[in-house]
């Protein structure tokens, strides 16, 4: 932005819609961190697209003043990839929940990490399906009791950081909705880092997982510097209790980009193609 344009503040990225979230929901903290990150980067809201799937957290696009796409459950990543490949000039941020990203959209998560398109993916993880009223998600501990799975699922929890690392994500971090400053910094880093940035954002569900309010005291900063060493990142993930926060890993893989950007002016002369068919 040029010097004459007034500086954008976090509030300029906040729309006039009132979120559907419960009072005390962790998602408010993540929304605030996203807005602060946009302000820190002075992004033009007209050149940012927030893409999401379905779930409580996926309501976030309309709560910004940016362009948004609130699509289908689990399908935010491929939609965002298509958009970014078509419009490399835009900043694309993808947000959603743990069920959306790791269960129904799990395959897209693997391949988005692999493909390494320049996107930032914030998963607002509350270890529960909140919108459908309290079913276990992929990140729920196996012994968590619920109406649908009395006594627990008996299935070990999905470990997103390890999967992201193995699948090729270019930037990996974990934040906590209660740590606004720390999370903002991670989102800024993620947006600035080329390729696919994955930010695992712990976000308590105060309604269905009230015990997650304790994350405030249980989360702990890693204290270790960001590494670009795959082995070292693997070691840290192996030792992680799931509540370690901070930047973890940044690789220097080149972001995937097609050889040419698509032309939005489609009045191209095709006579050379026609000539291929002619006898």
């Amino acid at each position: 932005m040029d010097g004459c344009t007034p500086k954008l503040e976090a509030k300029h990225y906040k729309s006039d819609l009132t979120p559907i979230w419960c009072p005390g929901c962790g998602h408010f903290g993540i929304q605030a961190a996203v807005n602060r990150a946009f302000a820190e980067l002075q992004l033009d809201p007209a050149k940012v697209v927030v893409v999401s799937g379905i779930g409580c957290s996926s309501r976030i696009p309309a709560y910004t003043t940016c362009y948004g796409f609130h699509g289908l459950h689990g399908r935010a990543l491929p939609l965002a990839i298509g958009l970014k490949l078509a419009r490399p000039d835009l900043t694309v941020l993808v947000a959603g929940g743990d069920g959306d990203g790791f269960s129904i959209g799990g395959n897209h998560f693997l391949h988005a990490c692999r493909r390494n398109v320049d996107l930032t993916y914030v998963v607002m993880d509350n270890e529960v399906y909140g919108m459908t009223k309290g079913q276990p998600s992929p990140t729920t501990a196996p012994d968590w009791d619920s109406d649908l799975q009395p006594g627990g699922t008996g299935i070990s929890a999905f470990r997103p950081l390890g999967v992201a690392l193995q699948s090729g994500a270019n930037f990996i971090a974990r934040g906590f909705s209660g740590d606004l400053g720390g999370l903002t910094k991670l989102i800024v880093q993620g947006i600035k880092h080329p390729g696919f940035s994955f930010i695992h954002a712990l976000s308590p569900c105060v309604t269905f997982r009230p015990e997650e309010k304790e994350w405030k005291t249980q989360t702990h900063a890693s204290g270790e510097a960001l590494t670009s060493d795959f082995q070292e990142a693997s070691r840290r993930i192996a030792a992680d209790d799931g509540l370690t926060t901070g930047p973890l890993y940044a690789a220097d893989r080149k972001a995937y980009a097609p050889p040419v950007a698509p032309m939005r002016d489609t009045k191209t002369d095709l006579s050379h193609i026609l000539a291929e068919f002619r006898i």
Binding site: P78, L79, G82, L85, A86, H108, H111, R264
Partner: peptide, 14 residues
């Protein structure tokens, strides 16, 4: 994913 990519690109104006 293929159809979603096409929807995303079209939303972007292409």
């Amino acid at each position: 994913a293929a159809v979603q990519m096409a929807i995303g690109a079209s939303y972007g104006g292409v």
